[in-house]
Amino acid sequence: MQFFLEVLIGGLLSGVLYALVALGFVLIFKASGVFNFAQGAMVFFAALTFVGFQEVLPGWTGLEEGGSAVFWLAFALALVSMIILGILTEKIVLRPLVNQPHITLFMATIGLSYLIEGIAQGVWGANVRGLDLGIEDVPVEWLMESSNILVSKFDLVAAGIAGVLVASLALLFQYTKIGRALRAVADDHQAALSIGIPLQHIWVIVWGVAGFVALIAGMIWGARNGVQFALTYTALKALPVLILGGFTSVPGAIVGGLIIGASEKLAEVYVGPFVGGGIESWFPYVLALLFLLVRPEGLFGEKHIDRV
């Protein structure tokens, strides 16, 4: 039982991290109906930019290396870079493609993902870098003492950050004027345009927020696995999360992430031995496939409304 709990909690916490990546997809899909294939590249770009600034800033400014001043300055600069990236994406890629079929926009984001990866590596180099957030990856003591369950402190903090991020985004979408406008744009570009919602602003906001989410996700993933090209593939893990949770739902991304995280770890531990292990990497996709058969819009996705 204790082992089961350990696996479950570990799975749920890593699920939160999947959810964080999935969240970036949901934001852009909700507001522009675009499945942004470049989200993985954005995560990579954000993490690399953050680490890059962390390396060069002490040299430029004379600040103490590894200090908190450098950390926050690098964070701010990386965030600004992500927002600029968002604005450029809107200006160069999305604006000329207003009212084009979704597949056109989707193809454009595939191209964009290569461009972003290339730029990131061109500017900062392709070396694998470590990223230290100053949170230790050690078991939480009180949990270990009270019930003898090992839970990583790092995972717990990361999950906490993701939780706060998601809650605030959900509130933003549901209750603010901007949030309402975002959902309106997601439903019908043209109608939103006709009532004077400036699509450009909305898209810049959405890509900016998605960039921010990518930065957080990139920093956490980067701290776990190192900042490297493989970060772009974490985005692929977000796909089953999205299918489970629904492409348009912020809470769906979270619940989907938790389910995927927990089930892949549990499957690895309990089913793995019977089939020779290595289940973890493909189990989520099988789950997603089964889900598509039963409930294609996902757990929390919006049903497609058709008038008959």
Partner: peptide, 17 residues
């Protein structure tokens, strides 16, 4: 061209954007 997934009231409120 109403916003199908928004409620009627939310639709109206977007008009005041």
């Amino acid at each position: 061209h109403c916003f199908g997934h928004l409620t009627i009231e939310e639709n109206l409120l977007t008009g005041a954007y």
